[in-house]
Design a protein around this nucleic acid. Structure first.
Length: 326
DNA sequence: AAAGTCTGCAACCGCTTTCTT
DNA sequence: CAAGAAAGCGGTTGCAGACTT
């Protein structure tokens, strides 16, 4: 035989807790400690079921709960952990002291998820949304005709197409494994660390700038998207998006800029070489504002969050199994 | 000022896992 | 070992307050 029922649900109160109920629960737990939720309501003089008491305690009354707005660091942590763990709210909460799984889940659904969607990021895969890469619409669009007139033959890099197809056909887990592989590859680690040392990734509105210039204004790295590939293999998909958006939204977009980058990507792009080529990186500053791509109307925190996603780095000592099982 | 809509969050629901008898 | 309740967890709902029309 199993246990006896924890409570008779008939006649038990539901809905928001009153101050009086909170006080009763708090006083009881201060004396007897949390746990034994089956008998707690009766002993504490509460007309609630044990489950309701447990939730009230774990989500609201616990003294170690941190209340108030999430900090930037906490938000970053949530995004980073979610990219690896998915909707494992309790596991994420275990790594954010003072925050409950419920609170994190709510914050994700009401803030972060919407923000990612607005920025064209799939909140499930943490990749740019491939449905925004509607290539048939590109091919049929007036923008393409315009680009033909401008002699822009390579709006979308064939390598990008292949990679986008690969991503679209792979499962989320596959993406994660690829992502983890890239993160944990020692060569890539070096590359990541170098990228971390640049200012490039933190320059929000310049994030998709195709070239980098040094502090003297000289171009030191052309087409940084391909250089960033090991750090985030999905960025290339965004690059084609960039060209499309720029071509369609701004007819005065610098033709030479597009041509340079399209030629560069179509002629020189090589997946393997990019993966194995560390990037030499002095302190970079982004190109001028004419190559801005990220929506400049976004709020500061929106843009920071968007960029921070791409900075996620897993330490060399990272053990995925240990991480999940902890 | 009032009605409608949106937003954030506490609490509930229901399924799965763990534990007790 | 099996049965069944407790505990854990993620998804969903309902409501109060904020915002918009």
């Amino acid at each position: 035989m199993g246990r006896t029922p924890c409570c008779d649900k008939n006649g038990l109160k539901k809905g928001p807790w009153t101050q009086e109920e909170d006080l009763k629960l708090l006083e009881y737990i201060q004396v007897h400690g949390p746990g034994n939720w089956r008998t707690l309501p009766k002993n504490a003089g509460l007309q609630r079921c044990g489950k309701s008491c447990r939730l009230r305690w774990t989500n609201y009354l616990r003294p170690d709960i941190k209340r108030g707005r999430f900090s930037f660091e906490e938000e970053e942590t949530i995004i980073q952990l979610h990219s690896v763990m998915g909707n494992k709210w309790s596991s994420i909460a275990a790594r954010l002291p003072g925050r409950t799984d419920n609170e994190i889940k709510n914050y994700w659904n009401t803030h972060i998820r919407k923000r990612l969607l607005r920025n064209g990021i799939d909140p499930v895969t943490h990749s740019p949304r491939l449905d925004l890469l509607d290539l048939s619409s590109i091919l049929n669009s007036a923008q393409l005709n315009l680009s033909n007139l401008l002699n822009l033959h390579t709006l979308v890099n064939p390598d990008v197409l292949r990679f986008a197809t690969l991503l679209a056909s792979s499962s989320n887990q596959d993406n994660q494994e690829l992502f983890l592989y890239n993160q944990m590859n020692p060569m890539n680690q070096t590359h990541n660390q170098q990228l971390q040392n640049t200012q490039f990734l933190s320059q929000d509105s310049q994030y998709f700038s195709p070239n980098l210039v040094n502090t003297n204004g000289q171009i030191v790295e052309e087409n940084v998207m391909s250089q960033c590939l090991p750090d985030n293999n999905v960025i290339l998909a965004s690059q084609s998006d960039q060209y499309r958006a720029q071509a369609s939204e701004n007819s005065s977009f610098q033709q030479s800029n597009i041509e340079n980058n399209c030629n560069h990507t179509s002629q020189n792009f090589n997946f393997d070489s990019v993966l194995s080529t560390p990037m030499s990186s002095p302190t970079y500053t982004p190109l001028n504002s004419s190559s801005t791509f990220v929506n400049s109307s976004g709020t500061e925190d929106e843009r920071e969050t968007y960029c921070s996603m791409f900075k996620f780095e897993i330490p060399e000592s990272f053990e995925f199994d240990d991480f999940i099982n902890n």
